[in-house]
Simulated assay, not measured.
Amino acid sequence: MNRMSEPLTTLRDDAGSASIELPATAERGPLDIEYRWLHAHRQDAPLAVFLHEGLGSVAMWKDWPQTLCDKLGMRGLVYSRPGYGRSTPRPHDVMLPVDFMSVQASDVLPALLDALEVSPAERKRMWVIGHSDGASITLLYAAAFPDSLAGAVAIAPHVFVEDISVDSIAEAKIAYEQGDLRSKLARHHADVDSAFYGWNDVWLSAAFRSWSIVDELTRIRCPLLAVQGYDDHYGTMVQIDTIARQAPQAQLSKLDNCGHSPHRDAPQALDAAIVEFIAKYTNDARG
């Protein structure tokens, strides 16, 4: 992961580092997780938890989580997964397991919520919003804890591996090793090689080609919005169409003139879709 070269001013409120310990990391001790609260003073408001993409971090979200929380009237929690941002780096000799996203959903996120004293009652009102790998983790969390969240938003999710994803990730490796991608990412991660190769190596491994979370989708019971851009070069519409088949309550939002990062490519359309979707269930809950 890598350290931010300058203070992040667009994400406001309380920033810090939480210590969590997982059975799989007991030999290395606790993991430090970089996090930031948005609207921390709104203790009565529902919580939105943001899960970043495969090369993301707290800093790389920029101001989008803050903007969305402003529109939703929610508190927000943004954090960097282990290996990213200013969280504990991945040891360079340790490759992520094929099921690394399941570990994040079932172990890391619950441990962080425990460390930050997010109560069971708060979790039942919580919305989990993820992008790319973070969207897949969002789906896995919703499947693993079907009664412990209000709803989920999966933006450009992966539910199985497509050739277009592998081809684009292979191109990213070339850009990282031969172009300027490494220098761009280094502004946002304390150990940039930990962040990049943790993501790149597992996605390009032969073992990962058979990775799929399609079966897990049937366990999702909460309201679910899945968003995909038509110009996404990391995945096609078959990803969210598959979600709709497996989780019939899912609502789909397909965005024109939008690539893999709708919060950057089409933020107004994305915000409108999320706000309308969440408001529907918030209003229903109020009766």
Score class of each variant (00 low, 15 high):
157 P>V: 14
218 T>W: 02
130 G>H: 09
51 L>I: 15
36 R>I: 08
215 D>Q: 04
105 A>E: 00
162 E>C: 07
72 L>I: 06
239 Q>K: 15
133 D>S: 02
206 A>P: 11
233 H>W: 11
39 H>K: 04
216 E>H: 02
180 D>E: 15
33 I>V: 09
175 A>N: 10
229 G>A: 02
153 V>E: 00
162 E>Q: 14
19 S>P: 08
79 Y>L: 11
164 I>Y: 08
146 P>A: 01
159 V>P: 01
106 S>A: 11
13 D>G: 08
19 S>K: 14
217 L>N: 07
272 A>D: 03
152 A>K: 07
179 G>A: 09
98 V>W: 12
126 M>C: 05
153 V>C: 01
227 V>A: 04
281 Y>D: 02
165 S>V: 12
151 G>I: 04
183 S>D: 13
249 Q>L: 10
33 I>L: 04
167 D>K: 15
14 D>L: 13
8 L>T: 10
57 S>G: 01
85 G>N: 09
243 I>V: 12
252 L>K: 06
218 T>E: 07
171 E>D: 14
24 A>E: 07
219 R>L: 05
62 K>P: 01
122 E>N: 06
9 T>I: 14
276 E>G: 09
270 L>K: 12
121 A>Y: 08
43 Q>V: 15
100 F>T: 08
255 L>F: 03
87 S>L: 04
215 D>T: 08
160 F>H: 11
116 L>S: 00
283 N>F: 13
29 G>S: 13
234 Y>K: 06
44 D>T: 15
164 I>N: 11
184 K>C: 11
268 Q>I: 12
277 F>I: 04
103 V>H: 08
208 F>Y: 11
262 P>V: 12
269 A>G: 01
208 F>S: 07
219 R>Q: 09
46 P>N: 06
212 S>G: 06
47 L>I: 08
198 G>E: 06
55 L>A: 13
87 S>T: 06
16 G>Q: 02
18 A>D: 01
64 W>N: 06
68 L>Y: 03
149 L>V: 03
250 A>K: 06
267 P>I: 12
268 Q>D: 07
258 C>G: 00
95 M>I: 11
2 N>F: 14
105 A>K: 05
204 L>Y: 14
37 W>C: 03
157 P>H: 05
268 Q>F: 04
276 E>T: 13
131 H>I: 09
35 Y>R: 06
140 L>R: 03
212 S>T: 14
88 T>H: 02
10 T>N: 07
108 V>M: 03
259 G>F: 04
4 M>C: 14
125 R>Y: 05
8 L>Y: 06
61 W>I: 09
192 V>R: 05
249 Q>D: 03
50 F>C: 01
184 K>D: 13
191 D>I: 00
156 A>T: 13
50 F>A: 02
72 L>H: 00
120 P>K: 13
52 H>F: 02
36 R>V: 02
103 V>G: 07
224 L>K: 03
6 E>I: 11
166 V>A: 11
193 D>H: 11
45 A>G: 02
188 H>E: 09
7 P>Q: 03
2 N>V: 15
258 C>N: 01
